[in-house]
Simulated scan of single mutants.
Amino acid sequence: MDQSIRLSLKERQMHGDESFPFGAYWYDFAPGAHVVDTHWHKECEIFTVLDGEVLFQIDTEYISLKAGDSLFIDGGDIHTGHAKGSQGCRFCALVFDAGMLTSANYDLIQDQLVLPFQERKATLPRLISPEYHGELSAHISEMISLSTTRPPGYEAAIKGHLFLMLSKAAAGGLLCNRSRTDSADMSRTERLKKVIAYIQTHYPQPIRLSELADLIPMSEGQFSRFFKSMTGQTPVDYMNSYRVRQAVELLRQPEYKISDIAMDVGFGHISYFVRVFRKFMNCTPSEFRKKL
């Protein structure tokens, strides 16, 4: 699967639909690649490594995952990750709106299980490993399998597995309270969100480093260090990566000229666009289009 699948977790994407807000996505990345560019979304996510290793960052926390491990990401958490080791990685991401667990009437389950989960007062463990959380891992494996085969009624089964995960975690004393965040970390996270939102809104136009630094505000040097520490990428690399991902979608539409696409996503020169595109996608824009 080519690297443009990263768009599957783009912040504005609807996962599933309003009647069943659940989406499953499979990824395959080369060694050292950014498997997930820095982003966030309101939905929860269960990220499961199928092969290889991934180093993940959630807000200011670093977590290493190996094959079989799963990571639970609460809605609103900024997260990013890249492949570790020499073999690359393959993984599946299950993304869902916690609202799919709510009841039509406010019942005991809503009060004692679902609402605390939505408020992050009683949420799932961050790292879920088969060695220590066998039953939780088994439910995740079943949801991945159901998402692959989609038998009749699989939606009900997936919803049931999510309820059973909360039930098992509650019974085992594994539910976590992540409703409170250290004020310093929260401030850093909110400032980063502000910068990323600005980039995603203004990427078609030239963006100066000073513009981004002024949003926080910081000096350009302080800002560059802050951004790299929070995302693992320099501000320029992040902007270029985001622009390339937008270009990938336009390249799927043959009526657009490559030179026009370069300008539309914020690259002032076609030669620079080609060079940056090759860096992130391991091919030129024209080669990518031919593969389609």
Results as ranks from 00 to 15, higher is better:
residue 6 R to V: 04
residue 10 K to Y: 10
residue 15 H to Y: 13
residue 27 Y to S: 12
residue 28 D to E: 10
residue 28 D to K: 08
residue 31 P to A: 05
residue 34 H to M: 11
residue 36 V to Y: 13
residue 38 T to R: 08
residue 41 H to K: 02
residue 42 K to N: 09
residue 42 K to L: 07
residue 42 K to W: 04
residue 42 K to Y: 05
residue 45 E to L: 11
residue 45 E to W: 06
residue 46 I to D: 05
residue 48 T to L: 11
residue 49 V to S: 02
residue 51 D to I: 00
residue 61 E to N: 12
residue 68 G to M: 06
residue 68 G to K: 05
residue 71 L to T: 08
residue 71 L to I: 08
residue 73 I to M: 09
residue 80 T to I: 02
residue 81 G to P: 06
residue 82 H to E: 00
residue 91 F to G: 04
residue 97 D to L: 01
residue 99 G to Y: 12
residue 99 G to I: 03
residue 99 G to C: 07
residue 100 M to L: 15
residue 100 M to I: 10
residue 103 S to D: 12
residue 106 Y to Q: 07
residue 108 L to A: 12
residue 110 Q to I: 01
residue 110 Q to N: 09
residue 111 D to F: 05
residue 112 Q to V: 12
residue 117 F to N: 10
residue 122 A to Y: 05
residue 122 A to C: 10
residue 125 P to Q: 04
residue 126 R to L: 14
residue 127 L to A: 10
residue 128 I to W: 05
residue 133 H to L: 02
residue 134 G to N: 06
residue 138 A to F: 05
residue 139 H to F: 13
residue 139 H to S: 10
residue 139 H to Q: 11
residue 140 I to E: 02
residue 141 S to K: 09
residue 143 M to R: 04
residue 147 S to A: 09
residue 150 R to M: 11
residue 150 R to P: 00
residue 156 A to D: 13
residue 157 A to K: 12
residue 165 M to K: 00
residue 166 L to Y: 11
residue 167 S to C: 07
residue 176 C to G: 01
residue 177 N to L: 03
residue 179 S to V: 05
residue 180 R to K: 15
residue 181 T to G: 07
residue 182 D to Y: 15
residue 182 D to T: 13
residue 186 M to Y: 14
residue 188 R to T: 07
residue 189 T to V: 14
residue 191 R to H: 12
residue 195 V to K: 00
residue 196 I to F: 10
residue 197 A to V: 01
residue 203 Y to A: 09
residue 204 P to R: 10
residue 205 Q to I: 00
residue 211 E to D: 12
residue 212 L to W: 02
residue 214 D to E: 14
residue 217 P to W: 07
residue 219 S to Y: 10
residue 221 G to Y: 14
residue 222 Q to C: 13
residue 227 F to S: 06
residue 229 S to P: 00
residue 230 M to P: 01
residue 235 P to C: 03
residue 236 V to F: 03
residue 239 M to R: 10
residue 242 Y to E: 05
residue 243 R to K: 13
residue 247 A to W: 06
residue 248 V to L: 10
residue 248 V to Q: 08
residue 248 V to W: 00
residue 251 L to Y: 08
residue 258 I to N: 06
residue 259 S to K: 13
residue 259 S to Y: 07
residue 263 M to S: 13
residue 268 G to N: 12
residue 268 G to A: 14
residue 268 G to F: 08
residue 277 F to Q: 09
residue 278 R to Y: 12
residue 279 K to V: 03
residue 282 N to V: 05
residue 283 C to G: 09
residue 286 S to D: 14
residue 288 F to L: 15
residue 289 R to S: 15
residue 290 K to Q: 15
residue 291 K to G: 15
